[in-house]
Design a protein around this nucleic acid. Structure first.
Lengths: 249, 249
DNA sequence: GCGTGACTTTGATCAGGATCAAACCGGGTA
DNA sequence: TACCCGGTTTGATCCTGATCAAAGTCACGC
């Protein structure tokens, strides 16, 4: 039951049909696709650029095509908490509400596929399975958010870091379409500060815990941003989760 | 944009139609209601009783009728994190998945209205607006969960307690169908331990911070479980949130 | 009344992360 | 080459909340 966060991240799909890792896939029925083509357009952002500020009026909903965006909130005194990472195929915005509840910022270079909201909402009413897929995706995201609440509320700094690395390792393996395995190697897409904001820590603590995991032989670093996992089992031991989070697909 | 948690709690509705504060309301079209009557049944639990354990097979979805339940997860070493409070009209379970992702426990005496899953899923496909309402409710819950991540990740113990009290105050006022106002009085439905599990604190810290808020005149206690809020503004100042979380309806 | 048990409060001490501060590293550029 | 700048590491110290421990409160049953 644990590590569901990772599972949810592993199984993102085209929101229009059940094809994995595509924002909009080629299998969608032609007439629907045609209607989508009609109302969609693309936007590009550079790393660090804001996409939407909390409270902004949103005239579109969108889907991440490539890159990573973050969803976050900031208190007046500057404390910020990231509440989600938006990966390819993740949905941005919500039908039926027109002001954004959170800030969306491009973490890496980012391309999103936008759909004008009104026509998209009409499409939803005439094409029920889109609503059904959206419900399914939203329920998965809700489960993920709740899993993350355990990380934020109850895990130690070291467990938090290990949990984040385990998630990124799994997602990365899924994107490359192979199982995560011992010795795997991946790129850390986040700065220490972004990791801190995601984990409810300070960047110094993040840095120290990464150093500690390195010293303990749980991870190896190649430069600052590339990570090798000698043993997945050792890493997952550090997360505080048990191992039955489903098979490491 | 802040205090959306409270807003979401304020506006729970019948999931079958947009009537507030009812699990299933009388306005639903007669034929649908008839079909619902066909597949529904009630269950009662005493305070403290488990409703579902994480991983259990769920043969029903349900809706809270009266009382409060908690949604929580527990690590092997016993650390537990509550990830949601289920109040009247909240939905339990999810169409399309048959094992529960979290523990559900009755916090107070509890009545839920169950619907056998298979027929409910059929009903959803034949009655699209039920799916639409469920999507809307799920999106609200997702926003609430993400708001709570800020509380867990970035707020101090005192701010956490104040945030929880503010939420309960608003919900309580909403249930009594009047605006929360200075001097309002309500019942604290949670033990110190349950509050701690919700806030990612220990029960001693909860107790100490409640004492501190009392000493500071932010709240008054009548016994252990009844609270008076002399000034809502003072309380909200303590939450760390700004005041623009919408009007205190 | 008395005891019992669940819940709560309070005290003393400890430790995990935060904070403040300085140095380091690597890449870009003048 | 020297410089700068964003990101990172490391060190010293502080403080919030955890932990360990004991006592208080209240409702209940005998």
């Amino acid at each position: 039951m644990k590590l569901k966060m990772e599972m949810a991240l592993d199984t993102k799909e085209c929101w229009n049909c059940p094809i994995k890792h595509q924002a909009v896939c080629a299998r969608c029925e032609p007439d629907e696709l045609a209607r989508l083509e009609d109302i969609k357009y693309y936007r590009n952002y550079e790393a660090g650029q804001p996409v939407i500020w909390s409270g902004d009026h949103m005239e579109f909903v969108a889907s991440v095509v490539t890159g990573i965006a973050s969803l976050s909130q900031t208190m007046e005194d500057g404390r910020t908490q990231m509440v989600g990472l938006l990966l390819p195929s993740d949905f941005i915005g919500r039908p039926g509400r027109d002001s954004a509840p959170f800030d969306v910022v491009a973490v890496s270079d980012l391309t999103i596929c936008c759909f004008r909201k009104k026509p998209f909402e009409e499409l939803m009413t005439t094409t029920p399975h889109i609503g059904a897929r959206l419900l399914e995706m939203t329920l998965d995201e809700l489960d993920s958010a709740r899993e993350w609440m355990l990380v934020l509320g109850r895990k130690t700094a070291r467990e938090k870091i290990a949990s984040l690395l385990a998630i990124i390792a799994r997602r990365d393996a899924a994107l490359k379409k192979h199982a995560p395995k011992d010795g795997m190697y991946f790129d850390l897409p986040l700065t220490r500060e972004a990791m801190a904001d995601y984990l409810g820590l300070t960047l110094e603590t993040v840095s120290r815990q990464i150093s500690a995991l390195k010293k303990a032989g749980i991870i190896e670093l190649d430069g600052k941003r590339k990570v090798v996992i000698p043993s997945l089992e050792l890493l997952i031991n550090e997360t505080g989760d048990d191992m039955d989070g489903g098979p490491i697909v």
